[in-house]
Amino acid sequence: VSVELPAPSSWKKLFYPNKVGSVKKTEVVFVAPTGEEISNRKQLEQYLKSHPGNPAIAEFDWTTSG
């Protein structure tokens, strides 16, 4: 189950709350306009370098507050 949070234009930000008793931590995933899922800052940096014209990296908020 995921919750969609505010994201930069043409992107989606999905929040996957951890299940009770789960060892997996809460996860935030950005979905690029191409449909590619980005789950960490390093991936995001690589994606933005190879896909010019996207929002600046500073516009991506990895917190769950939206």
Rank of each mutant, 00 (worst) to 15 (best):
G35F: 02
Y16N: 06
G66I: 13
T64K: 07
Q43V: 07
G53D: 08
N40P: 00
N18E: 10
H51N: 07
V23T: 14
G21K: 03
K25I: 09
E36S: 03
S22D: 14
E59C: 13
K49G: 09
V31D: 00
E4A: 08
V31M: 08
G66R: 05
D61K: 07
L14C: 10
A56V: 08
V1M: 11
S39Q: 10
A56G: 14
L14I: 11
K12R: 13
A7R: 04
S39L: 11
W62E: 01
T63Y: 07
E45T: 08
E59R: 04
K13W: 03
N54R: 02
P33T: 02
T34W: 02
N40G: 07
V28H: 02
E4K: 07
K49R: 10
I57L: 13
R41H: 11
V20E: 14
G21Q: 07
S2G: 13
E45S: 09
P6C: 08
P33W: 01
A7F: 05
P52F: 04
S22A: 10
A58T: 11
E59S: 07
P6R: 09
L14Y: 12
S65I: 11
S10V: 06
I57C: 05
K42R: 12
A32S: 12
L48I: 05
K13S: 02
N54M: 08
I57N: 04
F30Q: 00
A32C: 03
Y47T: 00
T26G: 15
P52N: 04
E36V: 06
T34M: 02
V3Y: 11
S39E: 11
W11E: 02
E45Q: 10
T26K: 11
P52A: 06
S10Q: 14
P33S: 02
G66V: 12
F30N: 00
A32D: 01
V1Q: 12
V20G: 14
F60K: 02
P52Y: 04
L44N: 00
V1D: 14
K24S: 15
S10T: 11
K12M: 07
L5E: 05
V1C: 14
Q46F: 09
I57H: 04
K24A: 15
P55H: 06
W11S: 02
P17C: 14
D61H: 07
A7E: 03
F60I: 01
G35L: 03
S2F: 15
V29D: 00
A58D: 14
P8Y: 04
F15R: 04
V31I: 15
V23F: 12
A32T: 07
S65Q: 12
P52W: 04
F30D: 00
G53F: 06
V28I: 14
K19H: 13
L14R: 07
P6L: 08
E36F: 03
K12G: 06
S10Y: 11
S65P: 15
K24E: 15
V28L: 07
L44W: 01
W62C: 03
F15E: 08
A7S: 06
P8M: 06
P8N: 05
V31R: 06
V28T: 05
V3T: 08
T34A: 02
V29I: 12
L14E: 03
G35E: 02
V3C: 12
L14D: 02
N54E: 09
S39T: 15
L48A: 00
V31H: 04
P17F: 15
T63C: 09
S22W: 06
T34E: 03
N54G: 12
E37T: 14
T34R: 02
V3W: 09
K13T: 03
N40V: 03
P33Q: 03
F15M: 10
S50H: 09
N40R: 04
K24H: 15
E37A: 12
P8I: 04
S9T: 13
A7T: 04
S39M: 11
K49Q: 13
S50N: 11
E36W: 02
L14W: 09
L5T: 05
Y47C: 01
S50D: 13
T63D: 08
E27P: 10
I57T: 05
V23P: 14
A56I: 07
V23C: 15
Q46W: 10
L48F: 03
K42H: 12
K49H: 11
I57K: 05
Y16M: 07
P8A: 04
Q46Y: 10
S22H: 09
V23Q: 15
W11R: 00
N54Y: 04
V31A: 03
D61V: 07
W62K: 01
W11L: 01
P17S: 11
N18A: 11
V28P: 03
I38E: 00
G53L: 05
G21Y: 03
A32V: 01
N54W: 04
G66L: 12
E27M: 15
P33Y: 02
T64R: 08
A56C: 07
G21S: 09
K49S: 11
N40E: 07
S22I: 08
K42W: 09
V3N: 07
V1W: 12
K24N: 15
V31N: 02
S50P: 01
S10K: 14
P8S: 04
G35P: 00
P33G: 02
V3D: 06
V29P: 00
V23D: 15
H51I: 01
K19A: 14
P17K: 10
A58Y: 11
P55G: 05
S9A: 14
E4N: 09
K12S: 05
N54A: 07
F30W: 09
H51A: 02
E36L: 04
E37G: 05
N54V: 04
S22Y: 08
T63R: 08
V1P: 15
Q46E: 15
V20N: 11
E59I: 05
Q46V: 10
P17M: 12
K13Y: 02
N18L: 10
I57R: 04
F60H: 00
E45M: 10
D61R: 04
S10F: 12
N54H: 07
N18K: 09
P8T: 04
V3R: 05
R41M: 13
P33I: 03
V20Q: 13
A56D: 12
S22F: 08
A32K: 00
A32L: 01
E27A: 14
T64Y: 12
Q43C: 06
A56M: 09
Q43I: 06
F60L: 02
E37I: 15
A56R: 08
L48P: 00
T26H: 14
N40H: 07
S2M: 14
A7P: 10
E45N: 08
S39W: 15
S2H: 11
T34V: 01
F15I: 12
V20Y: 10
T26A: 09
G66T: 12
D61P: 02
F15L: 12
W11N: 02
V31P: 00
D61T: 07
A32N: 01
P52L: 05
A56L: 11
V20H: 12
E45I: 09
I57D: 04
P55Y: 06
T34F: 02
I38A: 01
N40D: 13
P17D: 08
K19Q: 14
V1I: 13
V20C: 12
G35K: 02
Y16W: 08
S39A: 13
T63I: 06
L14V: 08
S10P: 13
E27F: 15
D61N: 07
A32P: 03
V1E: 13
Y16A: 06
V31E: 03
I57V: 08
S9V: 12
K25D: 15
N54S: 12
W11A: 01
P6F: 07
V31S: 02
G21C: 10
N54T: 07
P17I: 15
L5S: 05
S9G: 15
K25Q: 14
Q43L: 07
S2A: 14
I38P: 00
P17L: 12
I57G: 05
F60E: 01
E59D: 10
T26Q: 13
L14N: 04
V1S: 11
E37F: 15
S22K: 06
S10A: 13
P33D: 02
W62L: 02
F15W: 15
E37N: 10
G53C: 07
P33K: 00
F60M: 01
H51S: 02
W11M: 01
P17G: 07
S10H: 14
E4F: 09
K25W: 14
V23W: 08
G66D: 14
P55D: 03
V28W: 03
R41I: 13
P52E: 06
V28Y: 03
K25T: 10
G53A: 05
E59N: 06
S9Y: 10
I38V: 06
L48N: 01
P8H: 05
I57F: 13
P55L: 05
A58V: 10
E45F: 09
S39I: 13
R41E: 09
G53R: 05
E36D: 08
S10R: 14
E4P: 07
F60Q: 01
V3K: 07
A56S: 14
V23N: 15
W62Y: 03
D61E: 06
V3L: 10
K49D: 14
W62A: 01
G53S: 06
S22R: 03
S9C: 12
Y16E: 03
E36Y: 04
K12L: 08
P6K: 08
E45D: 10
V20S: 12
T34N: 07
K12T: 09
A58N: 14
S2L: 10
A32R: 00
E36K: 04
Q43D: 13
T34H: 03
A7L: 04
K19E: 11
S50Y: 10
S39F: 13
P8G: 05
H51V: 02
P6N: 08
T64E: 08
L48W: 02
G21R: 00
